[in-house]
Write a protein that binds this DNA or RNA. Structure first.
Lengths: 188, 188, 188, 188
DNA sequence: CATGAATGAGGGTTCATTCAT
DNA sequence: AATGAATGAACCCTCATTCAT
């Protein structure tokens, strides 16, 4: 609770503490009072920094979207050969599973609970993800990048739904194998 | 003699009308009053057929799981060659996209909102799906079947999140490619 | 569940089964559905015999009031000397404690929950009780009879509230002693 | 700075206004909305000060128990001779009749409606009452004190049930007579 | 700036009662 | 006569939000 801090800086500090709350409880089940309690501020303070629960959530989505993209970029930029990049990407997925799951939850909440008219929001983030993956794999084919993204989404959801029965390693091995073969055929 | 209504039959009729509601609004955001209004009955009637919102939801999950499994079995049993089966499977997925999306939404809500002690519920259904897919493709490797499931989940969610930008056909083609590849390696 | 039975007779049979329910749960906490379940009939049947929950309760109060008065008369009519009557009366109180408590509960419910304008109801029963006690003790002084009644009420309530700490015997001894003395002084 | 209200003070003010409501309507028949309306606040405010209806009731019982004991002590400590004390005690009872009635109602509701595991609660208060009365009358015999308590309970309930027919003065005279008698026998 | 008291609509649920069968 | 399906008001309680301090 720093006192003489920049307004925006403090707002982002509050936001960052909300991420896990929203991911764990979901938009609907998380009340402003719970948030206030968890952040150790009053509800009034919350409304001083965010005009509504919806606004708070909007800003959160923006922040985590940027944050995660940045993380991905830095985590993957060291790999040099294609094989190394594929490995790095899959390892990244494995390491950040719960983070991805949180993102999927939050994005799903976003579209479900937020004002119906389709705002761009995460959509742009998805495109950036796609482009980032495409760059990494050095492919021109956007379907391949989307394929990876689809697989990432599906994997965390599947593991959430089946309680972890589906193994990360087994699925990673399948996709690695597939990508190596496509590369060999020159269609990557 | 009571009113001439088959209790169980009517209960299932009510249930079937709830599917879309839950899928669209989510467990948390859908109130019993909303359900009652949508089904054109009173809340009292709802509680006459279901002991609680949670019970209603439980039963819904069971019903749609059975229904979908049954549909999948019948839709795919005519295909005879492996290629035909792959095609049939992918076409089935394409045709039932919105249904799958509903299911994923419902299952995710289920685990988020239901009392924490892990009930089997959808988990068993997922295993049945896996086994069904494995049977269809004639593979012994459970990872392959899980991979299909993962891609199904991921695809509908991805398309939900990006507003349909990701094409069903493109991704289907890749999945088909993947399966053909496995078949060539003898692991299918 | 006799089939071809007199309407009124069956109604009273239902009523008699309600006594313990109302005494144990209280008017407010006892629902018509609970009553119906306990009596193994449908709510519709209940409404066939009683026009409302209030009516059911009214009739119940009437029945138990009459019933208990009758019991008291018969239980005490064998005692001949005054001492014997006092003993019989006190023993009667001791034996019927829970029954008295039920009556007090039900009468209190009656006045608290039933239509506000003071209907006679139990009031007449209390007067009859008073007169019965007066007859038994052979006193002309109505205050003495009321004194016994007051003591009966107070005793069951006190024992209800203090969990039985107050002993029936000890209190009975005090009142017996008091009555004997009054008799000796000729003011009984 | 928050609104300039002492939370605990206001809570007790609300509580004190609830006493008559609960006594008149009973726990079961008194709704939080009715309370809110009667106190001229919103239901939300009620829940800001009390975590539940049961909590509110618990706190009420605690408060009235303490309050009445205190009042009794102060009202009776001036009487010096035994006769004066008896008179003071009976006058106190007469003056506080409606207050006693409220207490009896509320305590009975307490045990009827509150979670079954026997909490001490009012039971301790009853013992304190007993001890207080014993001190006042200068008797060692606990049965005498309990007898007074029994008569107090019985009297207020009897007068409630018979609509005031039983006279306070008449019964007080008998109680006084009883006590004088005991004193004459040396057991007081 | 920050607080938390206050609101009232809406959450899940229960209930007395009605009525077609 | 007897059933139980249906109703909708009212139950306890939670919530996002406002605003006096």
């Amino acid at each position: 609770m720093p006192k003489v801090i920049d307004h925006d800086e403090y707002r982002e500090e509050l936001l960052s503490q909300c991420l896990e709350l929203f991911a764990r409880e979901g938009y609907g089940a998380l009340s402003m009072r719970k948030i206030a309690d968890a952040l150790d501020v009053s509800t009034g303070t919350l409304y001083h920094y965010f005009s509504s629960k919806e606004d708070l959530f909007h800003q959160l989505v923006e922040v985590i979207t940027c944050q995660d993209l940045f993380d991905a970029e830095t985590a993957l930029k060291d790999a040099e050969t294609l094989d190394a990049r594929i490995d790095a990407l899959l390892r990244f997925i494995e390491e950040r599973e719960s983070s991805f799951l949180n993102q999927v939850f939050i994005w799903m909440d976003y579209y479900r609970n937020i004002t119906p008219e389709a705002e761009p929001g995460p959509r742009e983030a998805l495109i950036e993800y796609e482009e980032g993956i495409a760059r990494l794999l050095g492919t021109e084919d956007p379907e391949i990048a989307r394929f990876i993204l689809v697989m990432m989404n599906g994997l965390v959801i599947q593991r959430y739904l089946d309680g972890g029965r589906t193994s990360l390693e087994g699925q990673s091995a399948l996709i690695r194998d597939f990508l190596i073969q496509r590369k060999a055929k020159g269609s990557l």
